[in-house]
């Protein structure tokens, strides 16, 4: 019996080895073909829908007024999110800011996990297209705290498998092929500046916070709720890595 077990075990080991031997990686030409698809991103339609939704709320003029900036300053201001907003008394992402605007203008407040909200958020961020991410994590104590919390959330190993965001996104493993995908450098790959993005595998628009939730779910970590202090902190930390990169919304991701 014992011998049989050993044979069976080594057989499975062999099988798994032969599978892992077939590690495909895409060529540069293949990647270029996918990059070309950005020109006709299905999410362009969703962003156009988001524009309609924002104009229902009063458009960019109302948004600028709500944020207390001039309309010309608006793109630069949006490129600095998540930020601490005095009237909320906390650090918020674009989605929560829009919720505040809906509430204050006595409109129906959309939940954060909502496709209309995603469209609206994507359009709002696209107002800042071509602007450079200018998040300031040292702007005040609130931002400093959020950044520190974000770093802890990013680095802490959680869940049954003891994985953290850092497990796949630490500088040591960048470029390693994991399931045909090179692990991205969050700095160079413009991560903070290309979400919300169209996800080809899901056929829909996803926000950065939504994507991070998906990641937690797949890595068997308890999922952090959208808009919670931890989640916003995580967005602050990840967005800071893309500081200085140009915003290009909507992105297009696998």
């Amino acid at each position: 019996m014992k011998k049989g077990t050993t044979i069976a075990l080594s057989l499975t080991l062999l099988a798994s080895l032969s599978f892992s031997g077939e590690q495909f990686a895409m060529s540069d030409a293949d990647r270029a073909m996918y990059a070309e698809m950005l020109e006709n991103n299905p999410a362009d339609i969703m962003v156009a829908h988001g524009e309609e939704l924002l104009s229902d709320l009063g458009g960019e003029t109302k948004l600028a007024k709500y944020l207390g900036v001039s309309e010309t300053e608006l793109p630069k201001y949006i490129a600095g999110f998540p930020r601490y907003i005095e009237k909320f008394g906390m650090v918020v992402g674009l989605g929560q800011m829009l919720q505040g605007m809906m509430h204050d203008s006595k409109k129906k407040v959309l939940p954060l996990a909502n496709s209309d909200m995603n469209d609206l958020l994507a359009y709002t961020k696209s107002i800042a297209n071509d602007e450079l991410i200018n998040i300031d994590v040292n702007a005040n104590q609130h931002m400093k705290d959020a950044y520190a919390l974000g770093k802890i959330t990013f680095d802490t190993k959680r869940g049954g498998r003891g994985l953290s965001c850092l497990s796949c996104h630490s500088p040591d493993v960048i470029g390693t092929i994991l399931r045909t995908q090179p692990l991205p450098d969050l700095r160079v790959n413009n991560t903070g500046a290309t979400w919300p993005a169209y996800r080809m595998t899901k056929s829909n628009l996803t926000t950065l916070q939504g994507r991070m939730q998906g990641c937690m779910q797949n890595a068997l970590l308890a999922v952090i709720p959208l808009g919670s202090p931890d989640m916003v902190a995580l967005e602050v930390y990840v967005t800071d890595k893309a500081k200085g990169q140009a915003i290009a919304i909507p992105g297009l991701k696998r």
Binding site: D44, I45, A48
Partner: peptide
């Protein structure tokens, strides 16, 4: 149905 035409 939402749709869009783009000309380049």
């Amino acid at each position: 149905v939402k749709s869009l035409i783009k000309i380049k």
